[in-house]
Simulated scan of single mutants.
Amino acid sequence: MFKLRVILVAFLVTFIGAVSANHKSDHSVKERTKPTGSVYKAGDDVPVAKPAVVETTGARDGATIYSQKCAMCHDAGIAGAPKVGEASAWTDRVSKGEEALFSSAINGFTGSQGVMPAKGGCGDCSDEEVTDAVKHMLELLK
């Protein structure tokens, strides 16, 4: 057992020495300390990354936007969001007219009843899609 320990320690010392020697070689040092980027001057041919291609299938309907973006808050009443299907929660809002609802949904709203971030936080929704989602929610009240 003692011989095995001596052999293992000798092997370990040899291995560490080999790694250490390679770690200090000129090639290894140059490789580790080379610049990570490039500096360009005016007139240089600078490579430009191509923008990501985003494919769309066109405008999404109100039901789709509602289920993907709005339901999280409007199903649970988070942050004072009126729950879909609870007409009493919508009475004051609906009394101001549809245009006021559309404006609040698109531009955001902060009031005593709660908070609505602009477009419900949906950065990839168009104004039309948000309006269609509001119309969808109003249809669910009927």
Rank of each mutant, 00 (worst) to 15 (best):
V39G: 04
A52V: 10
C70A: 06
S20L: 06
H23C: 05
V29Q: 07
C70D: 02
R60I: 01
V54Y: 03
L8Y: 13
T33Y: 13
T57D: 04
A21H: 08
H27S: 11
V9F: 13
V53C: 07
S20G: 15
V54L: 10
V53T: 13
R5Q: 14
K30I: 01
I16V: 15
T33R: 01
N22F: 13
L12S: 14
C73G: 11
L8Q: 12
A63W: 01
S25C: 08
Y66I: 04
V46K: 10
L4Y: 14
I16M: 12
V19E: 06
A71H: 07
E31F: 14
G37D: 09
A49Q: 07
E31N: 08
V46E: 07
V39W: 12
S25R: 07
A10F: 13
D44G: 08
V19P: 02
L4W: 10
A63V: 00
V13T: 15
H27V: 08
K69T: 10
H23I: 01
P51A: 08
A59N: 08
A18P: 00
V9C: 05
I7Y: 15
Q68V: 07
N22T: 00
V53W: 01
V13H: 10
I7T: 12
A21V: 05
V6K: 14
R32N: 09
Y66N: 02
R5E: 11
V19K: 06
T36R: 03
V19D: 01
A21S: 09
Y66A: 04
T36M: 06
E31Y: 15
K30A: 10
S67G: 02
V46C: 05
T57G: 02
Q68E: 14
F11V: 15
P51I: 03
S25D: 07
T33S: 12
G58D: 03
Q68S: 13
A49I: 05
Y66C: 02
S67F: 05
I16S: 14
A52L: 13
I16D: 10
E55L: 11
C70P: 02
E55K: 08
A63M: 01
R60K: 15
A52E: 10
P47T: 06
D44H: 11
T56N: 00
D26A: 15
Q68K: 10
D45Q: 10
D26R: 10
A63N: 07
K24I: 09
T33F: 14
S28H: 04
V9P: 00
V19T: 11
G62S: 09
G37A: 12
C73N: 09
A49Y: 05
T56V: 03
P35T: 01
H27W: 11
G58K: 02
C70W: 04
R32D: 07
N22Q: 09
